[in-house]
Nucleic acid binder design. Structure first.
Length: 170
DNA sequence: AATGTGATTGTTAAA
DNA sequence: TTTAACAATCACATT
């Protein structure tokens, strides 16, 4: 399950980064940003050492939620295609072809996931402060948790849109 | 063995 | 505001 790796430029062992800022010209601000990005990754890696199994992954966007289902369908119609890129392209194309109404259910699910993500993040931040050592809370084996979070019936939403303070920009 | 790669869009976090 | 990384997937290539 390390599929989350995807593209990990973190492996950059090249010593080409960390270049001293010699040119005060701001023309290369973009380059500086990129350097910062790399620094971020390195810092994270160095600080954490490797990776945090506890760190909650970002919530899947509506498109990704749709992709999950699309992949299954796509595989059925294209059992020979094994390239992830193929599904990605097809999915993207289909996604754009879909109507907002069609995307609605996926967005709804994505919204829910986001809520959970925030919750997990809270817990993660909380733990982050403590000394990480014993977080192996024994899972309740007596109660197999297959798929409990699957309630779409609850679609009660309060359509109370009252915009009061929405002024920014100057 | 372990892990990056490719391709898509959306979202999140950060500069 | 704007930019970039990252979320899932999986056979394959590379080290």
């Amino acid at each position: 399950m390390k599929a989350s790796k995807g593209k990990g430029p973190v492996r950059k062992d090249k010593k080409e980064v960390l270049k001293p800022v010699e040119d005060v010209k701001v023309g290369k601000r973009k380059a500086a940003i990129e350097a910062d990005k790399s620094r971020r990754k390195l810092a994270k890696n160095a600080k954490l050492g490797k990776k945090d199994p506890n760190k909650p992954k970002r919530p899947a966007s509506a498109f990704f939620v749709f992709l999950e289902e699309f992949r299954t369908v796509y595989k059925k119609e294209h059992p020979n295609v094994k390239a992830v890129s193929a599904v990605g392209k097809a999915g993207g194309e289909k996604w754009k072809s879909m109507s907002p109404a069609e995307k609605a259910p996926y967005e709804a699910k994505a919204a829910k996931r986001k809520t959970e993500y925030e919750k997990l993040m809270k817990a993660y931040n909380n733990k982050e402060d403590e000394t990480e050592d014993d977080e192996e809370e024994v899972a309740e084996k007596s109660k197999p948790i297959a798929k409990v979070v699957e309630e779409e019936e609850s679609a009660e939403e309060d359509d109370e849109e009252d915009d009061d303070d929405d002024e920014d920009e100057d």
